[in-house]
Design a protein around this nucleic acid. Structure first.
Ligand SMILES: [Mn+2]
Ligand SMILES: [Mn+2]
Ligand SMILES: [Zn+2]
Ligand SMILES: [Zn+2]
Lengths: 136, 136
DNA sequence: ATCTTCTTTAGAATAATTATAAACAACGAA
DNA sequence: TTCGTTGTTTATAATTATTCTAAAGAAGAT
């Protein structure tokens, strides 16, 4: 449980002004036990539901991108018509339940270390992500 | 090198009528040595260039989805504004050069076997894909 | 308080994809 | 081969996620 005050500080420290909208978004995104996987429209709806206050869709986009740029959110590569984001910004892998369209975190020990035995001259590895698709 | 006749048979066997457009698309997609990674707009432009004949954009979409449904093309999960397809429909992994926006096949031995140590009740694994993002 | 800069917002613009429906082409049976 | 049926192509419109715009509002500094 993070207090509103702490969100305000974190925002200030990131040179993001602590607006009412951003604080509400922080509460929805980061006041949870487990990692949270969402689309913009998931988040947009949740804000209304959980805080009672409406934030414009443009602001949700702006804020998510601001947080993404600051490294507080991660983008998850799956083929969907909507982009998925993740509050777990560490390097980790996923199950994707194709039917439910739901992401589930895998612990690194659920997958084991992955050694890439090939390299491309002039390029270095930025990330290694495993996506395990699930069906019934 | 696959002959036009062979494409016609393959299409018929898949209960897809062998139209001029589909045969042209087959030539562009499948008459190559290496695996081919593409977006719809890549393909749309290549058809004009390589066959001299224009195929409507709607037909390119229709055909790619028909081939995808038949299992002749694979969709690659990366976050991009456009969907990527792959003529290599086997289970395999990728480099993604973020700057060039280009996919490169990894051989399975470049990655090694991946054992998923966790399961979700009622669900089974459909695919396991590794995406290695590259930067400069 | 005042000024500056950043943020929010509604609405418009963009761009990938999908839907529509009319013209057309492949097929199979006569 | 002709004819009727069914599948396909196409231009174009519709849809949808996302980004842009520009004006109004809020936060921070002086
Ligand atoms: Mn996650
Ligand atoms: Mn590939
Ligand atoms: Zn982003
Ligand atoms: Zn498809």
């Amino acid at each position: 449980m993070t207090s509103k005050q702490e969100f305000i500080e974190k925002l200030r420290n990131s040179s993001l002004r602590p607006t009412k909208q951003r604080i509400n978004i922080c509460e929805v995104l980061f006041n949870r036990d487990k990692t949270f996987h969402f689309t913009i429209s998931d988040l947009f709806n949740l804000i209304k539901d959980k805080t009672g206050e409406k934030v414009s869709l443009a602001t949700v986009y702006n804020t998510v991108h601001a947080f993404h740029k600051k490294g507080y959110l991660k983008e998850i590569p799956i083929n969907s018509n909507q982009t998925y984001f993740d509050t777990n910004v560490t390097d980790h892998h996923h199950f994707f339940d194709v039917k439910e369209e739901k992401l589930i975190d895998l612990k690194n020990e659920d997958v084991g270390p992955i050694e890439i035995q090939r390299s491309i001259p002039g390029k270095k590895i930025k990330s290694v992500e495993v996506l395990v698709k699930l069906e019934d």
